[in-house]
Nucleic acid binder design. Structure first.
Lengths: 229, 229
DNA sequence: CTACTGCTGCCAGTTTCTGACAGCAGCGGG
DNA sequence: CCCGCTGCTGTCAGAAACTGGCAGCAGTAG
């Protein structure tokens, strides 16, 4: 058996057991040495498996590594399908791929009739007006928001005046025609909106900004009078 | 990338496609040679994946629960959150509720950090132009499409002339401002589009229409030159 | 018939995997 | 305190695998 196949098998063995299993036991079940088992465990962890290992106890796979079977109503399936199609059509390509991947994963863990519903759902997203550019950069912006990192941008404002700013992005708004980054602007010392198509250049900093993005979002919502989504 | 990782990725690529995909296409997507792809397919089959391969056609993964999909990535969570928010904001209220419920179900089976990501995702749907009415009826239309039932409608066409028709609805298109029912019209004996805001009255029949909605959808796509979603 | 595709065998170069050994660290029992 | 059990890491050399290229067979669609 190849190592790749063995790793998949180890994953299945761990999923089968709810209680800690010693490394020696796992190794003998797989027919490998203890040293190799440790290496295999490390490999699975690199791939995102959260395996608790405690000295004197053994290994347990925490749930959440693989997607468990799910059940939805027909309307929920339709809603997911429609939402994913909108994202695939209107967001940046990477997010679109992510939407398709998510749907494919969901499709694999729902009953057959729902899978049919999901795959042949008749709710379509019609073509809309042209969306202002900057699709390539959106992935970077999303990454910055997720990791709460500062961004250095060159921005062309509505009067076509260009400026360089460092901003703390904390939200990204998708409108029918444009996308808008909501961020704290170090230059203005206030929250500002930046249309992504007016961002001429962009670089993600390695520095995290000092506030939590939820807090900034909350503050922004209060000033704008926007309810929670 | 390790081979184990690549095998899981191959599974995910196969899951994403519902129609046969040639080995060459898969190999290039994974960045490996055709020969290695054949070996990878063989490995997955040994693990229990049911992959149909037919000469001159390609590969299709048959659904089943062996080798369940890996947990969602952060980007997939963002995509689901954004899609659901768009549905909640732009579709009819019932579908919006369904979207929220679906997200709640997903939220229940993902690890804490992803749940936080899902619940506080910073991708927002901005308000758009006003959406033409008929939100109440959309649920009925969706039901008719799902169950392939005829609809009796009173329709006001673009010249404001009202007519009564029996239609076989098989798709519902969501545009930025309007929603359009795509249906076979018994009156015209052809496929017609109906803006939902111009449907003055609507009643669902208990009679199922004689064709499958997939077939109608396929026919419509061919005449319109629309690719699969 | 032809083009396309799945599938297999073989080979050589490269990469990796593996087991063994030694050693450290955390935990609980005596 | 010591001891045993267990997780975990580093190192090393031989073994095993992985990989791509090539040639060839077979089945399908047009």
């Amino acid at each position: 058996m190849s190592r790749a196949e063995r790793l998949l098998q180890l994953m299945q063995v761990l999923r089968r057991h709810r209680y800690p299993l010693s490394g020696a036991a796992l190794a003998s079940e797989l027919g490998i040495s203890l040293r190799t088992l440790y290496r295999d465990i490390a490999s699975l962890r690199i791939q995102g498996a959260r395996i608790d290992g405690e000295a004197g106890v053994g290994y347990v796979l925490r749930p959440g590594f693989v997607l468990p079977p799910l059940m939805f109503s027909e309307e929920e399936i339709e809603a997911l399908a429609l939402g994913a199609r909108w994202v695939a059509d209107r967001a940046d390509p990477r997010l679109g791929d992510a939407a398709r991947n998510a749907i494919a994963k969901i499709s694999a863990v729902i009953p057959n009739d729902l899978r049919l519903e999901l795959e042949t759902s008749a709710l379509l997203v019609g073509p809309g007006g042209p969306i202002a550019a900057a699709g390539r950069e959106l992935a970077t912006i999303r990454l910055a928001i997720r990791s709460e990192c500062k961004l250095d941008i060159r921005y062309r404002d509505l009067k076509n005046k260009e400026s360089s700013r460092t901003i703390w992005p904390f939200a990204l708004g998708f409108f029918d025609r444009v996308r808008v980054v909501v961020a704290w602007c170090e230059l203005r010392e206030d929250i500002r909106h930046f249309r992504t198509d007016r961002i001429a250049a962009l670089e993600i900093c390695k520095v995290r900004y000092p506030r939590r993005r939820h807090a900034l979002l909350k503050q922004w919502r209060q000033t704008q009078g926007i309810a929670d989504q």
